[in-house]
């Protein structure tokens, strides 16, 4: 298992290098300009000066190599500095956002908690709702519950969050006036009232996102359960005199979870990547919103760094999913 993991990690190094090059080239080929929001009446000399200060006019390979150096050497070193109070990176140029002129990683670190909280919580809530729905739907296949569950799952999968989000705002914020439409990032939870306030502002984005998780995971679980419910070992379990709870929750569910856990693990990078649309609608200042504003502002270092981090996360979680599969299913061995 360990050998396998190490081998996979080694293979992923060239993959990630290639990805970084592709991301860099795509961003360079993409049209757009970080200075396009300045007033048109600004003299071109001033613009040229600002471009030079951003380093846009450097040769491409210099920009790429500089970014590689910053990402793989300076940023980790800086992290080391922060952790251990050393000063290796003093005076070295970290990856700087073109928009804010602040270090990209500082901004990401600022954004990550909100995304983890909102998107992560949505994922957990979605799973907690999906599991019972999936189990009951499969166990009582074609029952009224299953039919309603199927219908709602299809609805959840089919309705995009830019629709359901706005609908939720209209219902819960505009007409009922129960929940705020804007996520207050600066809310500090230190009392019951602020805790409740935090819950209120998270309610809508979490529910909108959870609906989608619920819809897809419950469908996966249902079909996986159905596959297993008709297996002989389930009959064996019944013949052994096991109660239905044991049969379904121990025998069927545990086997059905093998593919579902993989799907769940593969979905985990999205918790870090955030939810671009939903975060935008509810003004949750997460990674997704950061990415989209950076794209709008043509903030190449920010977009590039984020995209590459996503690539790393996806590669890592693919590996984790594979390893999980091995742990969960004794029939699979990585040697």
């Amino acid at each position: 298992m360990l050998n396998y993991a190490i081998r996979r990690l080694l293979i992923s190094v060239p993959t990630l290098c290639l990805i970084s090059l592709v991301i860099f080239s795509l961003l360079k080929m993409a049209p757009g300009d970080p200075l396009s929001q300045l007033p048109p009446s600004l003299p071109p000399e001033v613009r040229a000066n600002m471009r030079a200060a951003l380093g846009i006019d450097e040769p491409l390979f210099v920009q790429y190599l500089l970014w590689l150096k910053q990402f793989f050497v300076i940023e980790p070193l800086h992290g080391f500095d922060v952790l251990f109070g050393t000063h290796f990176t003093d005076g070295m140029q970290r990856i700087i956002s073109w928009q804010s002129r602040g270090p990209v990683f500082r901004i990401i670190a600022e954004r990550l908690p909100q995304t983890l909280l909102v998107v992560g919580l949505a994922y957990i809530v979605g799973l907690l709702i999906a599991l019972p729905i999936g189990i009951v739907s499969a166990y009582k296949q074609y029952s009224v519950f299953d039919q309603i569950g199927t219908f709602l799952s299809m609805l959840g999968l089919a309705v995009p969050s830019f629709f359901s989000g706005v609908l939720a705002i209209l219902i819960f914020a505009v007409y009922l006036d129960w929940l705020p439409t804007i996520y207050n990032t600066n809310l500090i939870v230190n009392s019951w009232s602020s805790f409740i306030e935090q819950l209120r502002q998270m309610a809508m984005p979490v529910m909108v996102l959870a609906v989608q998780t619920t819809a897809s995971i419950s469908r996966y679980l249902r079909s996986s359960m159905l596959d297993n419910l008709n297996q002989d070992y389930v009959r064996t379990a019944r013949a052994k005199g096991m109660g239905e709870n044991v049969v379904v929750l121990i025998h069927v569910l545990r086997n059905s979870m093998i593919p579902v856990v993989t799907v769940i693990a593969l979905g985990l990078p999205s918790i870090f990547a955030g939810a671009i649309v939903t975060e935008q609608i509810f003004k949750v200042n997460g990674i997704g919103e950061l990415l989209i504003t950076a794209i709008y502002a043509n903030d190449v270092p920010m977009v590039q760094t984020l995209a590459f981090i996503f690539a790393v996360l996806i590669v890592v979680f693919n590996l984790i999913a594979d390893l999980f599969y091995g742990l969960l299913d004794p029939r699979i061995r990585y040697d």
Partner: peptide
């Protein structure tokens, strides 16, 4: 963002 871009 292209139209108002500064790239000559």
């Amino acid at each position: 963002s292209v139209f108002f871009g500064s790239d000559p």
